[in-house]
Nucleic acid binder design. Structure first.
Lengths: 184, 184, 184, 184
DNA sequence: TATGAATGAGGGTTCATTCAT
DNA sequence: TATGAATGAACCCTCATTCAT
């Protein structure tokens, strides 16, 4: 789904995969901004392009289509979150601290990326298609990390046995947890 | 904006006033169904018409435009709910019973009208415009009824003083409570 | 073209062909009024019906379609004019008086029937189709009457020989004389 | 509202600036042709596009809507006429010559641009809206030029004092002079 | 890579016309 | 004759996507 043609990736050097392609990111952020403002369906690709400071056609060099733009926002945001989470969690052995850091990171991300948070909350539920695709990949990993923290903490006796990772997830993910099918 | 004429109700037999759909209602339900399935923006008016078993143009005899179709779903559902609520609440003097009935009615409505419930949850937050219009009319009345029940019960000593009607509303309305401005 | 279904003409008695069918005339006048106001293309048949105080469907009992409505306005107006002209001209032998009466009748008709006059001037030239049909029938007769008056007057020595019926026609019919093809 | 970009004029060769149509002009001429043939209301935008050899959507890159297409025909034609008139009038000092040139230009324009002339005559009076907009801008300037020529000629003693610029205007503009408000 | 003019499929909406009553 | 609800063909316009430069 990612679909960002890398035809020009020849210049890409090792170790800079994440930081490169500022235009990719610029378009993504512009899309988030515009989608947050007008809603996905009302938003025009040309608006996104203008907000990103590129030509309309350029959007299609980095994204397959409008849909991909939306999908990529989620993937990108979740990817960033998960990467940071893994990094931060590796810095401590204490389960409580891990849970705390995970939570803080979760909310600070949402705060820092207002547009993305809005798009998450509003647009994600639009389409079951999106949700299903999303929940089987990034969301699954999100939950997995959480589960690991909690189970580890329970084994070490830091958390009560009754603590349920699903409940914790609900507290964190909040309202947009109620997508169809996954149902927890 | 509402239904205009009822002359076509000629075939209406005694005892089926409730189940027999007027054309207005038929189109409304069809719209809810189609919107629930495809989402408002992906849905085509012609699909709604087909689902309602009428010609495309007929939709516009009963609704101003596609937007009005969505708005009317909410108004109609809330109107029905509020009417039934007032009726049922009038049948008892007991505050606890009132609260119970109100809650049961709330959830049974959502259950019986799956499509509308889905559209409510998914599409309503789309547009701030919708939400604002909606929250100042029907939602306001919904909250008002709830507040009256609770205050009455508190005066009679049936409910604890700390019981907060806003919290009760949140329990009932759940996730889609986060409309702009009202904010609680 | 006339096309006014006479299915209900059984009740029509001899001698009242012209005065009967007040509804036909009512619709015709309403059409002239609405067309004059909004222009033929912007006018809606339902507007005409409302202005005439009848139901939409009723219009189609008297006229084949919207086009026929426009055509009939001209036919009817010209028919009335020509009939009156013949009547009035028969009342005198004097050519000058005939010409005077013809002219007075011409302008007083236009004055009395403002709406029709406007429709004449504005809508008639719309369509070559209209014009051709019109100019070969009613207009031809109009010109014929005028020519007869003038030639008769010239024979009697009341008008100068150089007097040209075409010029006279132009003075009377004015600007809307320049339709394609007839060219005089 | 006018043409936006000219980057597509790449194929433009020297010496054909006048005859080579920009896309804006091509669409305008196509519109005039189609409108002249079918009348504004019967004409379809897709016909105009086809006649201009562009896609339907392209029309909307150069014109706001179908209405704008009609308006622009007038503005463009009058703009061209006025520009040429000013140029030609600047080449002579003789008032009679000026008046002659103005008249010749007037009629030769109408002759060369048959379609536009027809649209002028037929469609312009359709809408009071059009006429008012038109008569307060381009037409006003047209009359102004004429007035200046005549007054100048009268001062120099080349024209009789009784010569009335309004009468001259009527002779040139002919039947379509009867717009609302200006009234002469 | 980048551009943005051009494309054209698609859909909301209107309204002349029909037809069952 | 009269009604007016219902029909559905037709058309304007938008905008995601392409492609020549």
């Amino acid at each position: 789904m990612q679909a960002r043609k890398r035809t020009a990736a020849e210049g890409m050097e090792a170790g800079e995969e994440k930081t490169r392609s500022t235009k990719y990111e610029a378009i993504l952020r512009a899309a988030a901004k515009v989608f947050a403002q007008s809603g996905y369906f009302n938003a025009k690709v040309s608006e996104v392009a203008r907000a990103a400071g590129v030509a309309d056609g350029t959007v299609y060099l980095y994204f397959k289509n409008k849909d991909d733009l939306l999908t990529s926002i989620f993937s990108w945001a979740m990817g960033q979150f998960l990467q940071r989470a893994r990094t931060e969690l590796g810095e401590t052995e204490d389960s409580s601290e891990k849970l705390r850091r995970f939570s803080v990171l979760h909310f600070s991300q949402l705060e820092q990326e207002r547009d993305i948070a809005i798009v998450f909350q509003i647009e994600l539920r639009q389409s079951t298609k999106f949700m299903e695709q999303f929940s089987t990949t990034y969301l699954a990993e999100y939950l997995q990390i959480l589960r690991e923290i909690i189970e580890e903490g329970q084994e070490k006796g830091h958390f009560r046995k009754e603590l349920n990772s699903k409940v914790v997830a609900k507290v964190l993910l909040g309202p947009w947890t109620r997508w169809p099918r996954t149902g927890y």
